[in-house]
Amino acid sequence: MNEPSDLYTQALAWLGKEATRPVEARDPVNVPMIRRWCEAMGEENPIYVDAAAAAAQGFAGPVSPPAMLEVWTMARFRHTGRSAEDSIPALVLFDEAGYSGVVATNIEQEYDRYLVEGDRVSYTAVIDEISPEKRTGLGIGHFVTIRYEFTDQNGEPVGRMLFRVLKFKPNLAQPAAAAPEAPAEFSHPRPAVTHDNAHYWEGIARRELLIQQCSSCGHMRHPPGPGCPKCQSLEWRAVKASGRGKLHSFVVVHQPRIPSLQYPLPVLLVELEEGVRLIANGLDLPEADITIGMPLQLDWVEIEPGYVLPAFRAAEV
């Protein structure tokens, strides 16, 4: 509907102007709301709800957590969203130009004093800053900063807040955000079991590390595969490894992270005394103690009930 440059010019006309109508809190500062808020946020400081604890800190009575500053003046919750009279016209301007996405990016608050029971908070809000068009991970958009000034029933300032949102054109090249849902319980990544490697993973589940050995020429091989690269035989047997080896190489993973593992995470490339190498994690093996060539001994970790993986400890020399 608007060229971006026209839109930006129009938006800039809102700078310094009232962002939305002034608002007075519907309820005075009160302990029941403070208690619910503290429970929801996991805030356990007793001075917010308990008169004696507050008195011990030199307060006349319970005080409101500073971060609740904006809570007192929040608009009524409506399933249908913000009412027309509570709207912020500068943001509506972006909505109508197709910048329909919104995400809060920054909140900065300053407090002049603790709010106490009976205080009634009001705010006025002005448009403080509007950025030129930016390319962001969410889409093309503008950052809009609104400055809120909070006062008490006497008109005295009690705090202020900078609230920044990104108004953006949703990037259609990106998959839609998944619907919010309870995160599925993470299960540790599992190997794909095939006809060719089933013996290996079944052995590990029994805490036996099995190496393939060619039935025809005796060549040992890993990772598992159907054919002998030395003599082309498809016949093989599984040999139980002694569990002794030495460190051939290693890394320490910082990123990316798999939720079920501890980071920083050393990962070892172990050369078994049978001559094959394999990847495994360390056990009781801090990074500072890891050196290439160090002797290692096989052990096991049960990463989830019934899901066992090989791991290696430093071995006595």
């Binding site: 599992r190 079991v193 095939t194 990847i279 994690n281």
Partner: peptide
């Protein structure tokens, strides 16, 4: 986790946290 040779390859690395190109090269 599909039982194909291509996916089976990753079973030797990913469960141990060796799960990105950077980690494979770092070794």
């Amino acid at each position: 986790v599909l039982p194909t040779a291509e996916i089976a390859h990753y079973g030797n690395y990913v469960p141990f946290g060796l799960a990105s190109p950077a980690s494979w090269v770092a070794m």
